[in-house]
Amino acid sequence: LGPKYVGLWDFKSRTDEELSFRAGDVFHVARKEEQWWWATLLDEAGGAVAQGYVPHNYLAERE
């Protein structure tokens, strides 16, 4: 699936296409579209919880 990303700060969605998340949440990014990335929010087991657009500057690649 490629690298995983972690949320740096809490983010509250403003549209139906955006995905709310908390700092520390883990994502798989499917598409990078300039300022907004289409991402899947993952649970602790790595299963998909939700999908939506997230601001790229709120995520960091997980080491």
Results as ranks from 00 to 15, higher is better:
17 E>C: 15
22 R>A: 08
32 K>C: 08
27 F>N: 01
59 L>E: 03
41 L>W: 03
32 K>Q: 07
31 R>K: 10
58 Y>E: 00
47 G>W: 10
11 F>N: 02
13 S>I: 06
13 S>W: 05
49 V>M: 08
27 F>V: 02
27 F>K: 00
34 E>A: 13
46 G>P: 03
26 V>H: 08
48 A>M: 11
57 N>A: 08
60 A>N: 06
35 Q>R: 12
58 Y>I: 03
63 E>A: 12
7 G>C: 07
24 G>S: 03
56 H>E: 09
15 T>Y: 09
25 D>I: 08
17 E>K: 14
24 G>Q: 03
9 W>K: 11
11 F>L: 02
40 T>P: 00
27 F>H: 00
14 R>A: 11
29 V>Y: 04
14 R>H: 10
33 E>C: 15
58 Y>Q: 01
59 L>D: 04
16 D>K: 11
52 G>P: 02
10 D>G: 05
36 W>M: 13
40 T>C: 12
12 K>C: 14
6 V>F: 09
17 E>G: 12
8 L>M: 09
48 A>W: 09
63 E>P: 13
62 R>V: 15
54 V>R: 02
5 Y>K: 00
6 V>K: 04
16 D>H: 11
30 A>V: 15
50 A>N: 06
27 F>T: 01
4 K>A: 10
56 H>V: 11
48 A>P: 12
13 S>L: 04
20 S>M: 03
61 E>Y: 11
9 W>A: 07
11 F>S: 01
17 E>T: 12
11 F>K: 01
26 V>L: 14
33 E>L: 09
22 R>K: 14
23 A>H: 05
4 K>N: 10
39 A>R: 02
14 R>I: 10
40 T>R: 04
15 T>W: 08
62 R>Q: 15
5 Y>V: 01
9 W>F: 13
62 R>G: 11
42 L>N: 01
5 Y>M: 02
30 A>F: 12
18 E>T: 11
21 F>K: 00
21 F>I: 05
2 G>E: 15
60 A>H: 09
15 T>P: 01
8 L>E: 03
47 G>I: 14
11 F>R: 06
30 A>M: 15
20 S>W: 06
36 W>E: 01
7 G>T: 04
42 L>C: 06
54 V>Q: 00
31 R>N: 07
42 L>I: 09
62 R>H: 14
3 P>T: 12
56 H>D: 06
52 G>K: 04
13 S>R: 09
59 L>K: 01
19 L>S: 00
46 G>A: 04
15 T>S: 13
26 V>K: 07
31 R>Y: 12
15 T>G: 12
16 D>Q: 11
26 V>W: 11
61 E>K: 11
48 A>R: 08
58 Y>T: 03
60 A>S: 10
41 L>Y: 02
8 L>K: 09
17 E>D: 13
2 G>Q: 14
31 R>P: 03
54 V>S: 03
1 L>T: 12
4 K>H: 14
3 P>H: 10
52 G>C: 07
37 W>N: 00
57 N>F: 09
29 V>R: 00
5 Y>N: 00
57 N>R: 08
6 V>G: 02
2 G>P: 12
23 A>M: 08
10 D>Y: 08
38 W>R: 01
15 T>H: 11
31 R>Q: 07
43 D>V: 05
17 E>W: 13
43 D>E: 01
53 Y>R: 10
39 A>E: 00
60 A>W: 09
24 G>F: 03
58 Y>N: 02
51 Q>G: 04
49 V>L: 10
10 D>S: 07
17 E>Q: 14
23 A>L: 05
44 E>S: 12
23 A>I: 05
37 W>Q: 00
54 V>A: 01
30 A>C: 13
1 L>Q: 13
43 D>N: 10
39 A>S: 04
5 Y>W: 09
52 G>L: 03
38 W>V: 05
63 E>T: 13
3 P>C: 12
40 T>W: 12
43 D>H: 03
17 E>V: 11
8 L>I: 11
42 L>P: 00
61 E>R: 11
55 P>W: 07
8 L>S: 03
33 E>Y: 12
10 D>P: 07
40 T>A: 06
13 S>F: 03
15 T>F: 10
42 L>S: 02
36 W>N: 06
22 R>V: 09
39 A>L: 03
38 W>L: 08
17 E>H: 12
12 K>P: 05
58 Y>R: 02
25 D>G: 05
47 G>S: 13
27 F>D: 00
10 D>V: 08
34 E>Y: 10
38 W>E: 00
40 T>L: 12
35 Q>A: 12
